[in-house]
């Protein structure tokens, strides 16, 4: 079955061009990002902005994402579905895009951080890794 988001929605403009209407909700978010980036540099503060809670009009999200673009780093995460994490044109500004197992987006946020939290290896997973690695190396030592 065709998914709803696959239906091409074209926002009609006066000229009939494909360019999206700017409902000017992207710029305020960009300002928020700028301030967060300054805080990151000065105090090391990490900020996360949930884009699902933004009152975006048609085209606003697209505008914002095109402003941010995609930079040098792109990370793909495979856990409970796919996640696409990329550093934007602006180092320190990351786009974190989570999907579920069936490929539906479940969260989209901007994280202002040196590395997004979710990318870092988690202590619990490291502990688990140690156990599994030991098991691998000494299959007999544990029952």
């Amino acid at each position: 079955m065709q998914k709803l988001q696959d239906i091409a929605v074209r926002v009609e403009t006066k000229e009939g061009s494909d360019s999206t209407i700017d409902h000017s909700n992207a710029i305020p978010v960009m300002h928020e990002v700028l301030h967060a980036l300054k805080r990151l540099k000065e105090r090391g503060d990490v900020t996360s902005i949930d884009l699902n809670s933004m009152p975006f009009g048609p085209g606003d999200e697209e505008t914002l994402l095109s402003y941010l673009g995609c930079g040098e780093v792109t990370i793909e995460l495979q856990s409970l579905g796919k996640s696409r994490i990329c550093e934007t044109f602006y180092p320190g500004v990351w786009l974190v895009d989570h999907y579920n197992a069936t490929g539906d987006r479940i969260a989209l946020s901007i994280e202002i951080n040196r590395v997004p939290e979710i990318v870092r290896s988690q202590p619990e997973d490291i502990s688990d890794a140690i156990i599994r690695l030991e098991q691998q190396l000494n299959p007999d030592s544990t029952a």
Binding site: D50, N52, S53, L77, S79, L80, S83, V96, H98, N100, I106, A107, S109, E117, I118, S121, Q122, P123, E124, D125, D128
Partner: peptide, 17 residues
């Protein structure tokens, strides 16, 4: 078999929801 990282992702989605 869900990793902690996966759990955190689940939590992010839940918080957002």
């Amino acid at each position: 078999g869900v990793s902690r990282r996966g759990f955190l992702k689940f939590c992010s989605a839940t918080a957002s929801m």
